[in-house]
């Protein structure tokens, strides 16, 4: 469904997320974080980045056909994620409004572990050129 047709409060289907040790290491290497120990735990922001990338794609904003600006980011972490751990992303649109030719979309994501506990959450404000 096109982004402009999604209403505030829209909930996306939950989807699984697993970040392997190799993926965590690739992330740490890419961001230049030599202090990370991706064998033992996934870098905190890697979890948020993986989730955000997915929902940017779901919203049809990843292919460059529209101008997208990542305007702000909130994140909180309840515990470290272990490589290979099975998580579930529960995402929704907190807001999705258009003003003066720009669409302001806030995606909220909760990262849930196998026991049903929230390990992290995030809120991302994306501004899309609506013209």
């Amino acid at each position: 469904m096109p982004l402009q047709d999604l209403e505030s409060g829209h909930e996306f289907p939950a989807e699984p997320l697993v970040i392997t040790a190799d993926e965590a290491a690739a992330y740490a290497s890419a961001v230049g974080d030599t202090s990370a120990n991706p064998i033992e735990r996934v870098p905190s922001m890697a979890v948020i980045a993986a989730g955000l990338s997915r929902f940017i794609k779901h919203l049809g904003l990843a292919d460059g056909t529209v101008e997208v600006v990542h305007a702000s980011q909130e994140a909180s972490f309840n515990r470290a994620v272990t490589p290979g751990e099975q998580l579930e992303i529960r995402a929704s649109l907190k807001s999705n409004t258009e003003r003066r030719g720009s669409r302001f979309t806030t995606v909220e994501m909760a990262f849930i572990d196998g026991a049903g506990a929230q390990v992290a959450e995030a809120s991302s404000l994306i501004v899309v050129n609506a013209s």
Binding site: S44, S72, Q73, E74
Partner: peptide
């Protein structure tokens, strides 16, 4: 991610399990 790296270095145990941030790009 570099901000998170700095916070992880300063708070090795507590950033990953009790950290929160709010930033603007």
């Amino acid at each position: 991610a570099m901000v998170s790296e700095m916070l992880t270095s300063a708070y090795p145990d507590n950033w990953a399990s009790g950290g929160r941030l709010k930033v603007r790009f």
